[in-house]
Design a protein around this nucleic acid. Structure first.
Lengths: 158, 158, 158, 158
DNA sequence: TTTT
DNA sequence: TTTT
């Protein structure tokens, strides 16, 4: 059947992303992401709990990560769980669960490009005339905007 | 900036979907969806709370809705909020908030096609040889499957 | 900082849940959950991809799982990722990533109790007088229901 | 039946929150939140789309909003949809759909307290010794941490 | 009405 | 207006 496998994370990168280019010039980025949640235990004591996740991004998102993300970056990641298994050279079965990202939102006030010299504001899409301010007249489908066929541009830094 | 606007619903259709075809043969489906949540109030009393949502689907998802959904169907909808405003003939400002669906999962045991003659089990993909059982050798990117470039097929009933 | 670590799954149990009771009579349930997603690759070919997740439930949710879930049950799970690590007897470092469930919705048409003799409809909360039908008068906070202080009852089978 | 009604937003406040105290000293906060998403249309043109949402917070979260949120604040909100209806003085039926927040994460680099004099870094939980770094020995339930019974502290600024 |  |  059709199921659902969805992960939503907000956290900070533990290191700069590791980016590689595979056959066909396909980019893959990999990094550790720390999500810290705060709980109150029964005694009312605050407990902070950090979980580390391995995030994998492909193609455009990987290139975005290479350009704009670095150690400490705060990001929103939406993706899905994927567990790989293999045997190491001693024949031990190994498992690794990763979050394959389908969407990335950079949450830092300003994103620095790789060399750190040219701060790039992450809000660069704003200048387009937002369709949200367009008036909608009438009920039913009359005044309904037909949304573009494409999906949200998850892989564009601007 | 890039933001996030995401809705996740599981509920039942209050009526059969209303499906229309706009210019260019673009399908739009619209229906009410009831989500019922159960709370315990302070006194430990169970409270059932039903919320009604207007769901709008476009193109392939709308055609899916037309073919497989009807009054009472249980569905998972993932989408985004969209508020439209207009003035009615008396000049009153009106607002309507809708959930525009980007993903649809049918959760009924069996989906009936429109005429009800040919029950279609919704579990029809389950027996296929899952790629998840394929062995993955090695760590890093060596044994990593390159995912297909396309997105999950959200608009297919099988 | 405060982060987000959220997982949403819809899938089928691969086996009956394994339920244990720890010190203090705290229940823990563990089971494998298969989520199957359908992709279309570049060539338009449908690809079905099954992922297996380890789900862990605690206390009331674990008891719910014991009573109502079994091999094949279709469930919605909302939770968070948690990776544990340990060394096996040979001193090999091992990792296991699990989904710790905070919310569970049973999606089967009818849930059977453990011995299978007494089918229990999972829709048993509906008949209560729903607050959603209560009229709301006025704008602002005047007609606003003050929600009960408690959270949604995630651990109740009825 | 048990359903799901979940909203996840990341966006900026359009104005300072409006906070009121109802009978019993229960706090309610209300504000507009703008979520901006970027799409690529068929022609590859970037389209920025801003949606405005009405967010309502209760009790501890409302007090948090009063203390730390203001016009422009970037926040993550997790909640549920709620549509209220009423008749205005002219007898027109009115509807308003709101997002009732169950969780709030402040994403600004630094949150200012109300008077703006004492910037409060929002990363204040990070330095605590994370339980995630505690070693876990053994498989099964042996080395498994029993999570505290309480829920994540959604209403705490530190 | 926000943000860049 | 749904579902149990």
């Amino acid at each position: 059947m059709r199921g659902v496998n969805k992960v939503i994370l907000i956290g900070n990168l533990g290191r700069d992303p590791d980016v590689q280019f595979l056959e066909g010039n396909i980019a893959v980025a990999k990094f550790s992401l720390a999500t810290t949640e705060t709980f109150k235990d029964r005694a009312g004591k605050l407990i902070s709990q950090t979980e580390w996740h391995t995030v994998v991004l492909w193609r455009g998102l990987a290139e975005l990560a290479q350009k704009y993300l670095h150690k400490g970056s705060l990001v929103y990641i939406e993706g899905r769980l994927r567990t790989r298994s293999w045997e190491d050279k001693e024949g031990n079965k190994k498992f690794a669960t990763e979050v394959v990202g389908d969407n990335l939102v950079m949450l830092d006030k300003r994103m620095d490009v790789n060399n750190g010299d040219h701060p790039v504001p992450h809000h660069s899409t704003g200048q387009s005339s937002s369709s949200s301010s367009a008036p909608h007249h009438g009920e039913g489908y009359a005044g309904m905007d037909i949304p573009p066929m494409s999906e949200p541009a998850d892989d564009l830094p601007f």
